[in-house]
Write a protein that binds this DNA or RNA. Structure first.
Lengths: 165, 165
DNA sequence: ATAGTTGCAAAACATTTGCAAAGTT
DNA sequence: AACTTTGCAAATGTTTTGCAACTAT
């Protein structure tokens, strides 16, 4: 389920916060109001975000949290297996990992939307490829880029309007 | 063959330089000694590189080329369908696209090596996924991360040595 | 002649780091 | 008390931009 974290696979029975507390203790780290607030906010909605968006959307009672703290917390969350991180157009993007099934993305370069999809076949393919190269897999990143349905449709609409002239 | 370029698919019968010249003309851009030198150097060996490595390895007669010029040339090469660009650990990495078969990568996080592999199955999978979402595909990025054979072996060797104590 | 290109330096970004003050265990 | 974390500002690393001088067409 969760890959590339440092606690290995654990069944989902704990809340993200409980899971993080486990991690904190296993690493002699400390729980702080900042980390707690960030974690709660991050898990309050299932969507993709980057550090900046996160900071901008922080609730008022968490507005005082410094940039560096946010960055530091995000890497802890990733390390704890709560979040998954990947690069998109040069910046880091995060999404829920803990308690969320493995999946990949379609990325619309018009509207920057990320659409999730799941494919067991891809995992099989990944294992087959790795086996051939004697490679030990810890994870992968598969992003299909293009134009999403919505953007295709609004483009077509625009084209039709022009054709009428 | 080549994806995400702006000239569409063209058969490989021209040298990279000729192909670039075509692009230059189609875009009312200009050929300069700097672009020519960079292009020649970039296509003199088939390997992955980033902007910095490229600049460092430039032959003496091209040493005077400014950073900005290199960056500007690289995006032209990408736009011309000569190079493919992707992000790795936060920076842009380039590889030959023109005249080179489509492939994906295994990325060793120990030694940062990129190993290429090709899979038709992956392309079929990509099309199938896109079809389901009514998505128009222009390309994809598939990177399998893990530890390569060489690094696995040297780790094992190290472990065995320790076990003997 | 016209418009694109160069090199430089400065700016822009995203992210990281050093450090003193504050907080957690 | 011991050690970690915070927020700030400064530093970093990579890529982009403004601009005057230059150059390809």
């Amino acid at each position: 389920m969760s890959e590339e974290n440092s606690l290995g696979s654990v069944e989902v029975s704990l809340s993200p916060l409980q899971r993080f507390e486990e991690y904190i203790q296993s690493r002699r780290k400390r729980m702080t109001p900042q980390k707690k607030q960030l974690l709660e906010h991050v898990f309050s909605r299932h969507e993709h975000f980057d550090a900046d968006t996160l900071i901008d959307n922080l609730p008022d009672d968490a507005k005082g949290i410094g940039r560096a703290t946010v960055y530091r917390a995000l890497s802890e969350f990733v390390d704890a297996g709560l979040l998954r991180e990947f690069q998109l157009d040069g910046r880091a993007v995060y999404e829920h990992d803990y308690g969320y099934p493995q999946h990949d993305h379609l990325y619309c370069k018009e509207c920057q939307k990320l659409i999730e999809f799941q494919s067991d076949e891809l995992i099989e393919l990944r294992e087959a490829v790795a086996r051939m190269s004697n490679f030990r897999v810890t994870g992968h990143r598969f992003i299909i880029t293009g134009v999403c349905e919505d953007c295709r449709m609004s483009k077509r609409r625009r084209r039709q309007r022009l054709d009428m002239i």
